[in-house]
């Protein structure tokens, strides 16, 4: 088997935001540890799904990898080279982003054509109108928008069409990677399937790699080759999709899977296994950040932070109960 080519590698990424202090608060300046030590790699041609509950840092991770915001610590590599000032433009051309909200991510004052061409104006300056059309036409047709309607404005399109426009915009620079932050979460059920199918087709046809963020486990399972589960700024489990489902190791992943309501009244599903909600990343619990909600927590979990260990076959988990591994 040929060695898998690594496109993106993120090493020990941390992103801490300063918290504005309230009028009466004193003492030490606090920070939100939105991302607190994340390592991941994205291989060529694969889809790495990232799942986790609101506030666990998914969007922040995407924005740091995209260099839309600076990391507090850590580094991002593209094809083995650290991304820095000298190659950021090339990186941005090869790695594009698709956002969740097709309503607010498209500038309402621009025609859709202009929106889709925007990355060309940044990355391929000086193209003539004909040259741009030659790039844009096949791209919009690929995502299922007619070229003739592109002089309209975003509000004249439905949510699903706007998401297609967002995808087209990401594709015009012929990227190798799309970082998709909840790209179908705002869409209706019947439209979500259309857009998920487009992602599939594009991947097959163009060999794209996706970092695909979602809070919806069925969507993540559908699109991903590998899945990373995040909790409070950290990856707590990462494995091939089938392995993650067949051999779930982290108690949080298990609880997450068991709380999904399955659309079949004959299978028991949706058990409320956890109490409470994810704690605040301003004051994360000591030790394992899941210990307060974990049904299996021991004394050790309260004090010692578990590290992400490989259990073999690339199945990583950060839990003291799954100790018998070398890291």
């Amino acid at each position: 088997m040929p060695e898998k080519e690594i496109l993106i590698e993120a090493k020990n990424i941390k992103k801490h935001f300063p918290v504005k202090r309230g009028m009466f608060e004193r003492g030490e300046k606090k920070t939100v540890k939105a991302i607190d030590g994340v390592d991941l790699v994205l291989y060529k041609g694969e889809t790495l799904g990232v799942i986790g509950e609101s506030g666990c840092g998914k969007s922040t991770l995407a924005r740091v990898i995209m260099h839309l915001i600076p990391a507090t610590e850590g580094e991002v590599f593209f094809k083995g080279k650290p991304v820095d000032k000298t190659n950021i433009m090339d990186f941005r051309r090869k790695v594009q982003m698709v956002f969740q909200d097709p309503y607010s991510s498209l500038d309402p004052r621009m025609s859709v054509k202009r929106i889709i061409e925007e990355p060309l104006r940044v990355h391929m300056k000086g193209l003539s109108k004909e040259e741009k059309d030659k790039i844009v036409r096949p791209v919009v047709e690929k995502v299922g928008i007619e070229f003739d309607v592109l002089d309209k404005y975003p509000h004249e399109f439905s949510g699903g069409q706007r998401q297609r426009i967002g995808i087209a915009r990401a594709l015009v620079t012929t990227p190798e990677v799309l970082i998709c932050d909840e790209p179908v979460s705002a869409l209706d059920m019947s439209i979500q399937a259309q857009v998920l199918n487009i992602f599939r087709e594009l991947q097959k046809e163009l060999g794209l790699s996706y970092l695909f963020i979602s809070h919806d486990m069925s969507v993540i399972k559908h699109v991903s080759d590998r899945i990373a589960v995040m909790y409070l700024g950290k990856i707590v489990e990462l494995a091939d999709k089938q392995e993650l489902f067949d051999n779930t190791l982290h108690p949080y992943t298990k609880a997450l899977m068991n709380s999904i309501p399955i659309p079949d009244p004959t299978v028991p599903s949706m058990k409320a296994e956890l109490t409470g909600e994810p704690p605040s990343p301003i004051n994360p619990p000591s030790g394992c950040s899941f210990h307060e909600r974990c049904p299996f927590a021991t004394e050790r979990c309260k004090t010692e932070t578990p590290v992400l260990c490989d259990r073999g076959n690339g199945h990583l988990v950060a839990c003291h109960l799954k100790e018998e591994t070398k890291c």
Partner: peptide, 23 residues
């Protein structure tokens, strides 16, 4: 159509059935 369009946790489908058009 709706029942077929939602991705299933039980089985993997290459392509999802999708209802054409918009709401």
């Amino acid at each position: 159509g709706l029942l077929m369009a939602i991705p299933s946790l039980k089985e993997d489908r290459e392509e999802l059935f999708s209802i054409p058009g918009t709401v």
